[in-house]
Design a protein around this nucleic acid. Structure first.
Lengths: 147, 147
DNA sequence: CCTTGAACCTCAAGTTACTTCAACTTGTAT
DNA sequence: ATACAAGTTGAAGTAACTTGAGGTTCAAGG
C-alpha cells in the first residue's frame, strides 16, 4: 500500500495542499489516517478520488455537483443514468458557452485585423476602432484619420 | 434620448440590478444621473457600455481586465494601437479558452455517449462508467452488467 | 546528537465577483 | 386612497479557494 503525505498527494493530483485540507473540511474528502506526528497519510484510493474531483472541477462542475457525482461513484445501488443526466445537462451548458466564445473570437479577430489594416499609418485622436468593441457601430470601416 | 431606470437597463443587458449598482460602486460604471426621487437614470451609452462589460465578463475576463479595456474605449488620447495590442492579447486568451472548452466538450460528449450506449439495458450495481471519470480505466468498454 | 530547513499542522482572515437581506422610499395603476 | 411593484442604502452572505501567522515534525548534514 503506497502511503503519501499531503505534498505527494498534491503533486500527484495537481492540487494545492491547502485545497486538499479545504476539501477535507467541507467533507468532500474523507478524513485520512494520521501518522505519529499528526501528519495526514493518504492511500491510492485518495489519489483516485481526488483526481476525479479535480477533473470534475476543471470541467466546471460545482462543488455540490461533484458531491453528487462522488456519492454516485460511492453508492453503486444508485443508477449510473443519474450520472449521465448530470453530465448531459453540463454538456448543453458547455456547448452554449462554446458557441458564444466562437462568436467572440470571430469579432475580436476581425477587430484586430481592421486595426492592422488601417492603423499602420499611425494613430490619431479620432480613431474610431474602439467603438467597435462597445458596439457603437458595425466592425470594419475607416480609422485613425489624423483630424 | 432614451432614458432607462435600473430595471430596464438590467433587462436590456441581461444583468442583475444589484450587479449594476455593484459595478457603479467599484467604479466600473460611472455614477448615473438621478431623477427627482433619487432613482438612477441611464442612457443608451450606458446600455452599450454595460453590454460590453457583460460580454467581456461572460468570456472570463476579470474585472480588472475589463477596466483596462473600458479605459481604452473611454480615453481617446491613447493610441488605438494600444487597443489593438490589448485586443490581440485577449484574442490569444480567448483562443486558449476555446481550445480547452472544445476538449472539455469532447470528453463530456464521449462520456455521455458511452453512457447512452451501454446503460440502455438498465443500470446495475456493477456499472463501471463512473470509473471513467476517476481515471480507473480508459473511457469506453462494458458497463452495467447486472451482476 | 544537534541543528537547519523543508514540509507539515491549525485557525483565521483575505479574495473575487457577486447575491441576498432588511428596512425604507418612490412610482404607478386602479 | 391604497396597494404593490420597483427603487434606495448599507451590511452581510456565498463559492471556492488562497494566504498568512505562528507553531510542530521530519530528513539530512556536520
Amino acid at each position: 500500500m503506497a502511503s503519501h503525505r499531503i505534498g505527494a498527494l498534491a503533486e500527484r493530483t495537481g492540487t494545492n495542499a491547502a485545497t486538499i485540507r479545504y476539501y477535507e473540511g467541507i467533507g468532500l474528502l474523507p478524513r485520512p489516517d494520521r501518522q505519529e506526528g499528526n501528519q495526514r497519510r493518504y492511500g491510492d484510493d485518495d489519489v483516485r478520488r481526488l483526481t476525479f474531483i479535480r477533473r470534475c472541477r476543471d470541467f466546471g462542475f460545482s462543488i455540490e455537483q461533484v458531491r453528487t457525482l462522488t456519492s454516485l461513484v460511492e453508492d453503486r445501488s444508485r443508477s449510473c443514468l443519474e450520472a449521465r443526466d448530470l453530465a448531459h445537462a453540463h454538456l448543453v451548458a458547455v456547448r452554449t458557452k462554446l458557441r458564444e466564445l466562437r462568436a467572440l473570437e470571430k469579432s475580436i479577430a476581425q477587430f484586430v485585423e481592421v486595426c492592422d489594416a488601417e492603423c499602420v499609418g499611425g494613430p490619431g485622436p479620432d480613431c474610431v476602432i474602439l467603438d467597435d468593441l462597445s458596439g457603437k457601430r458595425p466592425i470594419a470601416s475607416s480609422c485613425c484619420g489624423t483630424a
